[in-house]
Every structure is written in structure tokens, then in C-alpha cells.
Design a protein around this nucleic acid. Sequence first.
DNA 1: CCTCAAGGCCAT
DNA 2: ATGGCCTTGAGG
Length: 927
Amino acid sequence: MCAKMSVLQGRHLGIMTLTSSPCELDNMSLFQDLKLKRRKVDSRCSSDGESAADTSTSSPDNMPGSPGCPVVKVKTECIRSSPSPGTPRDTRDLRDLRGTDTREVTADRASPDSVFPEAASSRGAEERFCTPAASASPVSPLQSHTNVFTSPTPREIHRGETPDRGTNSHYLVQPKEESDNSVFDGGGRGDGSSHPSHRTPSPSVNRIESPSPGTGNPGGGGPAGGCGSGASSGSGSSSCANQQPGPRQRAPTVPSHILAHHQFWSQNRGVQGYDTRLLNGVISSAVNFGQNLSSATDEGMKPPAQRVAPATPRPAPSVIMGEVGGVRTMIWSVPPLEPTPTPTASWTATTASSSTSEESAAHVLLNLRSEPRGKPPGTSQSFGPPLNMERLWAGDLSQLPAAQQIQALNLTASSSQPWSRNGNMVTTEAPSQTPSAPSLQPQEHEEEEQPMICMICEDKATGLHYGIITCEGCKGFFKRTVQNRRVYTCVAEGICEITKAQRNRCQYCRFKKCIEQGMVLQAVREDRMPGGRNSGAVYNLYKVKYKKHKKTNKGMNVGVGLGGTGGINGSGSLNATKGTMAPTMLEKHIQAAAAAAQHNQQHGQLAGALMQHHKGSSGPESQNTSQQPASGHQSVQGHQGHAGHLVNGTILKTALTNPSEVVHLRQRLDNAVSSSRDRAFPLDATLAMIQTLIDCDEFQDIATLRNLDELLDHKSDLSEKLCQIGDSIVYKLVQWTKRLPFYLELPVEVHTRLLTHKWHELLVLTTSAYQAIHGQQKWTGVGSDGTSADFTEEVSNNLCTLQTCLTSMMGRPITMDQLRQDVGLMVEKITYVTLMFRQVKLRMEEYVCLKVITMLSQARDGTLELEQIQERYMSCLRSFVEHSAPQQPGRFHDLLVRLPEVQSAAALLLESKMFYVPFLLNSAIQR
DNA sequence: CCTCAAGGCCAT
DNA sequence: ATGGCCTTGAGG
């Protein structure tokens, strides 16, 4: 039981109790502590081949080169698993540093350079990222580590062993903290001293000799080629460190559990904190479960009791923890010293210190006037919205500047000339790029071979890359970022200037600029096929652009009939085009089902109703069924390859630990042998599986607030109520997870990740389904025929309910206007989802399947295991639907295509942070 | 055959 | 990790 995770001793889910750490540690260090210990534990435990191999067979390019970078890098698997043919170029074998706590290693050295002076001396002229401009005083490694901590992406989850389960497989995340050789290495080819790589017009000049040393084989460059160093680095994360936060602040002595509790609810800015808390709660519970199965159902897992509201909030560093889309990123920044109560609404100080004020209470409850997410408080500077790369890789393209994405493909007269865009494009971000740089105007003399300027860094451009004119560096940077789904973080304010000299200082801002300037994600090929011209729309479009530009320079408007841009719809839902990303299992199903049920039009009516209220919120089903990623490449999952794994002890193990699940494993094995999608799911198995899900769902308990009367008592403390609700949500969701029949099939970490990613969708789905199924008694007058009048009436009803509840909770009236302004959109969206479900007459059996499917749908990082389980419930749902509603051949599809709407509503819930709203609505149903 | 925008390689 | 240089390969 080496992965005991003794640092986590949460008594129950609600409290993130980290008793093993000194109470003065802040959240950040606690979490870090946890991760580090966890990793050490893992390295000790990884006696099997995979983990060790993962460490020892890494490409030499991933070897740490020099220490001191304030970046905690996370190494991931090589996307292409071929071993690197080359030999290590760095003779220093630093592998002994791997698998150890970098913090321990680095903390002992006086200065990074003292260990590897040659590394320091080899710094290139061009500063690499992460290198503070004034790096005279090296940052303490420990301090540096706490600047940014990015936990591994799901992609980094490796099969191995799960010590705390005593099984032979683990999904343990192994963050490899390495010194970043990119920081101090001498690289710096972009210092200008090298020969410009500007492509001369005559290709023959460049085509000389060079029998490429390593590979030689032309085919080697193709997809089957070796795993070059460039491709070997997985999706890590890094950050720039233009600014270093001050030294860690010592916190006043506060009992750690109270501190943690308070910091979650009162300090974190909204959902991120909530996620983290959820995460920790899940981890705690899971560990409890793993350690003591017998107690899991009784003492250890009691619902959270009421807690005393935290005392005075301490001025701790602001920690932005958590994740939203795929990767957890933690940023530690020192808050402004002056106690400026930023309007960046949060549970922050207002919750604890101002709860006596009715105004602030309202503020807390309604989370009024919150600034855009991610905007650093105190910055009045105008710049583009923050780029959430996790969500970006999760397929949410809505945060991209849609106009610019389209602009990259749309050839309007004014903006189609990349040369001029460099100077003319009004981007809020990086407003002025070195004005001295010559802004080339193609105009009449475009045929003249003037050097092109990179639209990102103003280096010498080599042509059109991914949609815009860029240099080789930015081209490669963009390619690597997209290919590896890297997640960057800017520790400054996200407005770092990107020039040739400084482009490597902040990857986040560089990539952000790439996006803003119109580089096209979809142009990075998923299949990595070199050469040629994509026959896809993306390539054709800017091929046209380039050619037309060269030939006529006339303003032209190429119709962007680009299906691939359909993801820019603002909803961030499943239908968001994944571009280069392979469709998820869910999407495949939706597509397949769509093909079978194309004629089905039935819910356009309801969509129209919503559209009346929200123009621009496009119905998902209208798009997702027709879209395919730009490259039709789909990795064919080898089911057979996993059959052996299933046979190999899994069923036996399950039979011993969870006999009821054997039938499912059996089914899974069958699925592995022959594609389950085409097989009929036996009805009896279907019903059994569904009944299991229904039994473990506790629909009403999850969808409602039990103690609403207590919450409505405005005499009690508001923050307490909110804590209660939050505790309750975490508790219920975790309990539900642990009751799931496939709970034992997946490691705790995976469950944690799933719940962390999906909690808001699960809430919306549950509460909406509950309202759809049980709420009809209340509003008997509603015909549920999906008319606009129904929708309006439902929204009004819900708002009234909400108004009543919130007024009661706060003890002061809330106007409807205020309510509409702050939660109107969310309530409408949730109502829409509810009506959707009601319209299709959602059944309990279908709801439980959808819930599991929702939970298991991962944008792209889903493991095969997840997909298989999801597949199982897809088949289950389909089987049920086919049997229960044979007259509705399109029902299966109809149900699936509603999930993106759930996601969309959930996204609003996340933004509003008022996660209790759906519960209030449902509680009203009960009363 | 040429073009050129993909991806790969590999020294830094 | 970066970026200069190379190969690739569909399209013209």
C-alpha cells in the first residue's frame, strides 16, 4: 500500500483536510506537496516495466539539460512511439535526476549554474523562454516550482499499477520534473546571426545535397517514421516567467482544514476553486475507499456536516487552481497588497467578511458583475480575452477570436493580405509591435521579392504557414503546440510583447498571438502526413488566398463554406469542430446515429424557441452531424488488442470484488472481440445494466436540495449555506461515482478526473432531467410541445422560483431585473434543456445512460478503457431505446444530440458560478 | 516539372 | 524547446 497518500486525510469529501502538512503552508504548497509525495511514492512502486521504461527510454531530447527554469514540466508519452534513432547529444546523463524530487535536488544547490556551469555559459544570445530578463539573481527553485504547477493531462496517464488497489494496473500520473534545458541552453539560433532561412524564389538553391544523416529513407519522413525529438515531447506545460512572484508568504497559523476549506470557498475565483475542491474531495473519498473498503459506506463517508464559517480570511497568495478543460494548471501569484475588493466576484472576502452586508450578500449570491474570466484583477489594460488552452484542446474553439479564425480563411480585401495585416490589424493584444519594423505593403509590387515579415514576431518569414505568413520558428512553435496539445501559462498578464528577440520568453503569449493573428489550428495535420496538399477545405482556402494574392492582389471574397469552422459557435459544446482532433466516441455515435436518422426534425421547434431568445446560439445538432475533422484520420482502436487484457485476470478480479459487474465485463470482452457498435445488445443485459444505474443514481437526492428549508432561513449565515450546498454537491456526486457499476474498472485517478471535468455537466443533466421528469406535475398547464410560449413561460416560472428562493436565502428582495441580468441566460439555457428532455419524454432509463455517457465522454484524452465503458452504455442505451420505442428509430440519435446542449448549459453554469441555481429550481418542485 | 505548405530531423 | 533546413507530395 505504498500509495497511501497519507497527506490526504480528508475525513469526508467536504473538507480538504491535509493534516500532514504544517498548517502554515498555503494551499499551493499543500497541493504541491501532495503531488510530489505522490510521485515519489509512485516511483518507488513502479516495479513494473512501464513506468520504469517511461523514465529510462525517454528521448534524449527530453533529458534535462540545465536546471533552474521556473517551469515544472510534465513529460508525456511519445506520440509516435518509435525510438529516436539518434544518440544523445548531451553527454551528461541526468537521468538520475529523474524520478526524484526535483525540488529536493534543486533546493540544495546554491545556484543553478553552479551545478552545470557550462550550461549557463552556453546561453544563446536570444533569451529562451522562462528566463527572466534580469536573471542575475536566480530564483529559488522551490519558489520557482510554485509559480506554476501543471498536472499531467489525461494523455499522460499511463497504464501501470494501482498500488492502493493492489491491482496490476495503474494510471498513475508521473510528472517528470526536469530542469529545462531550454532555458539556459545555448540554442538561440534565432539570434539573427544565423543564416536567414528565407526561402529564395528559386527552389533549386535550397535543394542541394544533404543526404539526411539520420534517416536517409524518404519514407522515414512519413507517418511511420521515427519519433524525432520534435515529436517526442508530449503535451507538457510550461510558462513564461517574465515576472516572478515574490517569496512565499508565510501564512498565519490557521488550522489547516479550516484554511483549506475557507480557501476553497472564499479565495478561489469561482469555478476553478470549485473544481479543485471537488477534485480534492474526490481524491479524499477515493483514498478512503481504497484504504478502508469497509468503512467507505459508513463512518468515513458521512455527508458533510455544517461547518463554521471561516474566520478572517488571511491575505494569502492568490492561487488559481484547478482545471476547466483538460489540464489542471495552478498559478500562484501574489495578490495585490492593498485590500482592494476587486469586483472579480468570487466567494472571496465577501463571503466571509462581508456577509453581514446585504449588498455583499447579494453580491455573493448573484456573483454580480464579474469580470471576464481570467482577467487579472487590477488590470485595466485592454487586451484580448484570455486563452484557455485546456478548453481549446478540449475542442472549445469559442474562445478563439472567431472573426480572426475566419479571417484567416476569408479573403476580404482589407484583411486578406498578410503583409499588411501585420501592421494594420487591430488586435487588442500586443498592440504595437516594434514600429520600426518595416511593414511591407504588397500593393503593386508584390512580385518583388522583398523579405516577408512574420506576422507573429516580425522575423523573416518563409511563407504561408497554417494560414498566415510566419517565420520558421513560429511555424514550428505553432505546430508543436497544436500537435502536442501543449498548455502554456503566462505568469504575467497575458500581454507579453512578441518580437523576434522576445518570442521565446512567453509561450502563452506567443501562441495567443498566433491564434489572434489567424493561424489555423486545423491546418496542423493530425495524421502528420507530410507534403502534399490537403484536399480539405482548410488548405484549399488559403491556397487560394496565397495564389490570388500573388496573382492579382485584388480584393476578393472567397466564400468560406468551411465546415471546419463550425466549431466557432460560442457554445463550446461537443459540436465544436475538433479540427485535427479525432472525434470522440460520443461524436462518432452521434454521427452514426445521425446518418440513420437524418430525417428526424422533431426538435427544431424547440430550438427555434430558444433561438428567439438567443440569436447566435446555434443548435448543436445542426452542425455536429455534418462535420468531420479536417483530416479524416481516425485512429482505429484495436479492440482485439485489449481482449487479452480483459481476459487476463480482470474478470476474475472483478468477480471477487464486484460480482455484479462480471456481466458487464463479459459484455465488454465480447465487445472487444467483435465490434459492439454493430451488435445488438441483449435486452436482459440492457435492462440489468440500466437498473443498476437507476439503483445507484438516487435521482431526487442528487437533483434537489434536501434541506432547502434550512437554507431558506435567512438568519443563518449565507456563506455557510453556500458551503453546505457545495459540500452536498461534492458528496452526492462522489457517492454516485462510487456506486457506479464500473467504479472498480477504473483507477481512482480516472474517476477523479472524470468528475473534475464533468461535474457541471452532470449537475445540469441531472437537474434538468429531474425537472423534465418530475416537474410536470407542477406546471401542468404546459403542453410541452416545445413552443416558444412554453419556453417563455417556463423561464418565467423558473425565475420566479429562483427569485423567491434567493430572496428568502438572503433575507432581502431581489428584483427580477437583477435576476434576469445575472442568471437569465443560464436559467433560460437550463430551462431549454429541461424542455428538450420533456419534449422527448425522457425516461429515467435513458437519463441514467446519458449521465454515464456524459461522464465518460472526454474530448480526446479519453483512454480506451473509458471509451469502451462508454461504448457499453451507448449500446445499452441504444438497445433500450430500440426496444422501448421501436416506433422512434431516431430516438437514440435524438437523445445523444441533446448532450451538447447540456454541455452548453453547463458552461453557463460554470461561468455564472451559481451552481446552486438548478437545485433551487428543483427544490421548488418538491415543495 | 514546379510550387509550396505540410511534417521531420537534428544541432543548438 | 527551438528553429533552420530538409523531405514530402498533392495540385497546378
